[in-house]
Design a protein around this nucleic acid. Structure first.
Lengths: 389, 389
DNA sequence: AAAAGTATCGGGAACGTTTGCGGATACGTT
DNA sequence: AACGTATCCGCAAACGTTCCCGATACTTTT
């Protein structure tokens, strides 16, 4: 027979439906509803899960309160040297590791900066990461890196995750697909600092770290012109990205300055991908009146074109001049070396990181969103150095 | 006059010192000590800090309990369609973002995998990251990446941070300095899954993902021998790393098989750094009886040596054969292409990630620590293809 | 109509910290 | 005695979730 847990009555117990597939009873005497707990649940396994020592464990061990332990561990005042010593010793002995999750929850901060980059394959972003990483670790921050893989969808999903994980700030370089910026506006609304770098956009009120793309492109094209190239093609990036537009502007400005006609069928704006580079490269080289030089938006595209030209027996730099952008490691080694624009990758990372730290420290101060422009450098190698004439 | 907050007595109140610069009183009647709370503290500024909408806010807005909201948001049963709908709508309207920190705390899991790599500069680790990233995101996990910068101290610090942040599993490739493994044992003790890759070690009971370094080295050296090289030097990595030892073994085995004498002054074990490579390279090339081929532990060292040789006017591959390891991007493009060992970097990442997911799912099952060995491939290029004779 | 079953919801503990505020004691000074 | 000061420590409320137990109202069966 079943006894009522409340009035201990035995006779007046009746079934009263099910709850979560367990029989439910009611005692008609005291009108108390109840279910029977599984006896196999009361097995000796007290705490099945591996227990991590907590502040409370330490407190119990040496007979103080957990506030005291917390304060002792953090070197607060109001704790006697003896108590502090005892706490520290016990913590070491019990192999205490603080639970950052609990800390984060109560402090509403994570000491973590998020970083979203579109890709890892080129050397550019890894180098930016190294720079940012150095500054952030120095300041006691962690860096969580995600890659959007050049996909807008993934980028949005990444920002959501970052948001849910309550990062203290976000560093982001946009994908080539990104046209909508709602997912970034959220950070403004939430008051979470945000810094864009390299692949930036307008329409979002946040600091931006970029390089002087216009000048760089201008210099590159000017360099080609001064080396006697006339009909210079441009293989650019997607136009929704500011970098692409700036580089295009630089290209046009240089052409105009030196009175070169821009042949619009030799200006192509494409996606950043090896496959696309190959397609556009083939198109350019197969033109019946093909260009005598190409300024490409990045080194991998430039190299792709160089290889195709060499295959076709087109001599570089004599018959075709090539300039890339970014100075990838392989660019120095390919024969003839690829002339390119070196970007201060480490500096970009450092600057971005420093800026977000400032924003975090400046406690809601209304920092006018500004833009930092870092300087690039033209690295002249064989691919564009034509013996004059 | 001041009244006792406890007995409301007015006459028996006396001053009783200060606490935190505030006047303290005692009621002689009930012996109750107290201070007066500042009236200016009750200012209208309710919540100064920016408030993120929580589950509780939603609950209040539509008049249900937070348990209901939680269940509705997670698509649990026991919630009527109408309520669920109302909750979802209100959540969207209030722009609710779940607080992952609170979730993590209560669930004791973070859905985050940590990854510690020694460096970013070579293309190897970025590619491994790409592979691991793909698997992990697919499985709904985040990836937090840290770099130890080839420093043991930083590596230890990184593991501590990972531990404090309660990652669900760790993927790690050791630094070249790492000789002590206590910081990894902690993960075993805590029951946190751990997988080592590439730079692995013995002395730690965890799965390891490596490549067939011995075979690869053997094949590389054999290839040199078959191309007519006789006196082959080896520029290896630090011997505390298993990779270095395996590659050295492979080198020796190949030399022995073909009856070539290993000249011990031409076997150098150094650190992974460009500077060291330059020093050792100079040493090797300046030997009065210099080697006619070099098998290097990685491509950057190999390339460094190639450049030095070219400067000295040593012809490659005729006077000096060179084989590297890893197939960096630049290796395909340098002078005569660099013969090297291609590692399945993406596969390494994927395998490592898959394994840690298995460990997490397998709930404390005693998986015997095993080792997975992935296959490499010899990529023959110009630096070792000598016209026989 | 009583008994049994179903569907839907709420209360509240737990997760491990931090921290504001008050309590207790000890000792010195009027 | 009465009061002042300093030092050290504890209580308990957050932080935002999840989830175990129920509780309530209604429908269906006996």
């Amino acid at each position: 027979m079943i006894a009522c847990p409340k009035c201990s009555e035995v006779g007046a117990i009746m079934k009263a439906g099910y709850v979560r597939n367990k029989q439910r009873y009611v005692c008609k005497d005291c009108n108390y509803f109840f279910t029977l707990s599984d006896p196999d649940q009361t097995a000796p396994g007290k705490k099945n899960r591996r227990h991590q020592t907590t502040i409370i464990d330490i407190a119990k061990s040496i007979g103080v309160s957990n506030s005291t332990v917390s304060r002792a561990l953090h070197g607060h005042a109001d704790i006697s040297p003896e108590t502090r010593q005892a706490v520290l010793e016990m913590a070491a002995q019990m192999d205490y590791q603080p639970n950052q999750l609990a800390y984060n929850l109560v402090k509403s901060r994570t000491n973590t900066i998020g970083m979203i980059v579109p890709e890892f394959t080129n050397s550019f972003f890894p180098n930016v990461i190294i720079g940012a990483h150095e500054i952030l670790t120095e300041a006691g921050y962690n860096l969580t890196i995600m890659q959007s893989n050049e996909s807008y969808q993934v980028e949005v999903s990444n920002t959501r995750t970052m948001l849910a994980n309550r990062i203290d700030g976000l560093l982001i370089s946009l994908t080539q697909e990104t046209n909508n910026y709602d997912h970034l506006q959220v950070f403004e609304k939430r008051g979470i600092p945000l810094v864009l770098f390299n692949r930036v956009c307008d329409h979002v009120e946040a600091p931006k770290v970029v390089v002087n793309d216009f000048d760089a492109a201008f210099t590159a094209v000017e360099h080609l012109i001064l080396n006697g190239y006339e009909r210079i093609a441009h293989l650019g990036g997607p136009l929704n990205l500011l970098v692409s537009r700036e580089r295009l502007r630089g290209y046009r400005a240089a052409m105009e300055k030196y009175g070169k006609r821009v042949e619009e069928n030799m200006v192509i704006q494409g996606m950043f991908s090896q496959q696309k580079a190959r397609i556009y490269g083939k198109y350019l080289l197969d033109l019946e009146n093909r260009p005598d030089a190409i300024f490409a938006v990045n080194d991998s595209s430039a190299i792709e074109i160089m290889l195709m030209a060499l295959e076709k027996g087109i001599r570089i730099p004599d018959e075709l001049g090539v300039v890339g952008f970014s100075d990838n490691p392989e660019s120095a080694y390919i024969g003839p070396g690829l002339t390119t624009i070196r970007q201060p990758t480490g500096e970009i990372g450092k600057t971005t990181a420093q800026w977000i730290l400032q924003l975090i420290d400046s406690e809601e101060e209304v920092n006018l969103p500004k833009q930092k422009v870092l300087k690039t450098e033209l690295v002249v190698r064989g691919s564009s150095r034509r013996s004059k004439g």
